[in-house]
Amino acid sequence: MSIEEGIQNADTTAPPEPETVTEPAPPVQRPRRRGLRTAGLIAVAAVIGLVGGTAVGYGIQADREPTALPPLNQPGLAYPAKPLPKGQEPEPLSAKEDRQAKAQGDLRKLLLPRPAGARSDDFRSGIIKGWMSVYAYASEFDRPGDALDHQLDLGLRRVAAESWTTGEHKRVEIRLVQYRANGFLGAQDYIEGQQDYMPDEEYAGNDGKKLKGSSEGRYYLFPVERKAGYLDSYRARAYFHRGDIAVEIFMFDTKKISEKEIRSLAERQLGRL
């Protein structure tokens, strides 16, 4: 091969191209969400607004003049507006009309009088000259100690009582139980408490009947009690109150007690109050 052919062959042979190294593209960064940032800004703005509004409100209130309260005494409510002329004043209630005056006097005078021919049975009931002591009264209950505590809590003041016997075995006892400062509530609470257990089988076993002339008064007829070797036993009761006086009426007999008997006795005692 000649020199020219060698040169020609050398020119036609191209040198190898260098390798191109492809670098990985940088990761694309996503924009951050602005939701949390916006919610935070709103919360901060709300707190700032609340605190600012409260501060402004207190500032306005502090700068105001205090509002004067109305006077405690209001003479315009008095009736009549002017005293009545002399000689035109209403007459005071008589002792008969003034229930409070009657109740503050001798309580025994409000008791229904003993019927003609009836025999006193006061000693049997612990009654002395028309009065029952607080302890004697509490001893009439199944649990005297609890009864005494309960009566003192109600404000028991005094007890006037009357007891008598007519015929062979008929016996009647009336008690006027008066209460103190909370008198009306004490008398009402006690009577309602007694009436609550009257429907039980061991007592009257019924709701009784309403006493005419009293909003809550009731009288009860008990079922007959029979035991071998003993006379039949009949009972009746009445419970009501007037003002601070609670009234209890008990009737016992070996013969049947009529509804009229206990009702009439209770109505007459109510009338005296």
Rank of each mutant, 00 (worst) to 15 (best):
K210E: 15
K210D: 15
K210L: 15
L211H: 09
L211R: 07
L211F: 13
K212Y: 02
K212V: 09
K212N: 08
K212Q: 11
G213T: 11
S214Y: 08
S214P: 01
S214V: 00
S214E: 09
S215P: 05
S215A: 10
S215R: 08
S215E: 07
E216N: 07
G217R: 00
G217P: 12
G217A: 07
G217Q: 00
G217Y: 06
R218F: 13
R218E: 08
Y219V: 09
Y219R: 10
Y219S: 12
Y219W: 15
Y220V: 12
Y220S: 13
Y220T: 13
Y220P: 14
L221T: 09
L221N: 11
F222K: 03
F222M: 09
F222R: 04
F222W: 13
V224K: 10
V224S: 09
E225D: 15
R226A: 00
R226E: 02
R226W: 01
K227L: 01
K227Q: 08
K227F: 02
K227A: 07
K227Y: 00
A228T: 07
A228D: 12
A228W: 05
G229S: 02
G229Q: 04
Y230M: 13
L231Y: 07
L231T: 12
L231Q: 14
D232F: 00
D232S: 02
S233N: 13
S233M: 11
Y234V: 00
Y234C: 03
R235K: 12
R235H: 01
A236H: 12
A236D: 13
A236M: 12
A236W: 12
A236T: 10
R237I: 06
R237Q: 15
R237L: 12
R237C: 10
A238N: 06
A238H: 02
A238V: 03
A238C: 09
A238W: 01
A238M: 06
Y239E: 08
Y239T: 10
Y239A: 05
F240H: 03
F240I: 00
F240W: 08
F240N: 03
F240D: 07
H241W: 15
H241Y: 15
H241T: 08
R242F: 02
R242G: 08
R242A: 11
R242K: 14
R242L: 13
G243D: 09
G243L: 07
D244N: 03
D244G: 02
D244Y: 00
D244P: 04
D244H: 05
D244A: 07
I245M: 01
I245E: 02
I245G: 02
I245T: 04
A246N: 01
A246F: 12
A246W: 10
V247Y: 05
V247P: 01
V247Q: 03
E248I: 03
E248G: 03
E248D: 08
I249K: 02
I249S: 00
I249T: 02
F250C: 01
M251Q: 11
F252W: 11
F252K: 06
F252M: 10
F252L: 10
D253I: 04
D253T: 05
T254G: 13
T254S: 14
K255P: 09
K255N: 14
K255Q: 15
K256A: 13
K256Y: 11
